[in-house]
Computed example of a mutant assay.
Amino acid sequence: MDIMYAVLPHGKNMPITNLHGLHYQQYQIVKTKFIGDVSEGTVFAALIDNTNGYFANVDVIQNPIIAKKLTRRCTKAFKDCASENAKRKHFRKQNNLVLTEKNWKQFVGKRNTVLANYQTLLLDR
């Protein structure tokens, strides 16, 4: 599973939730998350899964970027935590190191960062 960022043009009059289950190249769109609106359309993040050779193009998606697979690593040892809240957060991070269908939204980039990356991408074209 990976995360893809893309733009859904305004002229398509289609909510991003309608993309669930559709295929883009060799990937199936499992879930979507709204990021923001730009002049070209709606920027969204999608959880995608490789469909092993099934190729079908969805012509509504523009400028897709498939993000590198990220795993989180906690390097600090929390043996002497100051609070119970810090211990709880550390425990949760240690148990959510792999991207899954249940926890994928925490691996989506920050809204302003994704929108800034799209603006620079569109200016470079």
Score class of each variant (00 low, 15 high):
Met1Trp: 10
Val7Thr: 01
Leu8Pro: 00
His10Val: 01
His10Trp: 14
Gly21Glu: 07
His23Glu: 09
Tyr27Pro: 00
Gln28Gly: 04
Val30Arg: 12
Phe34Lys: 03
Phe34His: 07
Phe34Pro: 00
Ile35Met: 06
Ile35Glu: 01
Gly36Asp: 01
Gly36Phe: 02
Asp37Ser: 12
Val38Asn: 01
Ser39Tyr: 12
Ser39Trp: 08
Gly41Ala: 09
Ala45Gly: 11
Leu47Asp: 01
Ile48Arg: 00
Asn50Ile: 07
Asn50Met: 07
Gly53Arg: 08
Asn57Gln: 14
Val58Lys: 06
Val58Glu: 08
Val58Gly: 03
Val60Lys: 04
Asn63Met: 07
Pro64Phe: 05
Lys68Ala: 15
Lys68Cys: 12
Lys69Thr: 07
Lys69Cys: 04
Lys69Gln: 10
Lys69Tyr: 06
Leu70Asp: 08
Arg72Tyr: 13
Arg73His: 15
Cys74Ser: 14
Asp80Arg: 11
Asn85Gln: 15
Ala86Trp: 10
Lys87Cys: 10
Arg88Thr: 13
Arg88Phe: 11
Lys89Tyr: 01
Arg92Trp: 13
Arg92Glu: 12
Arg92Cys: 08
Gln94Phe: 06
Val98Met: 11
Leu99Thr: 05
Thr100Gly: 07
Glu101Met: 05
Lys102Leu: 15
Trp104His: 05
Gln106Pro: 01
Val108Pro: 03
Val108Thr: 06
Val108Phe: 06
Thr113Pro: 00
Tyr118Gly: 01
Leu122Pro: 01
Leu123Ile: 14
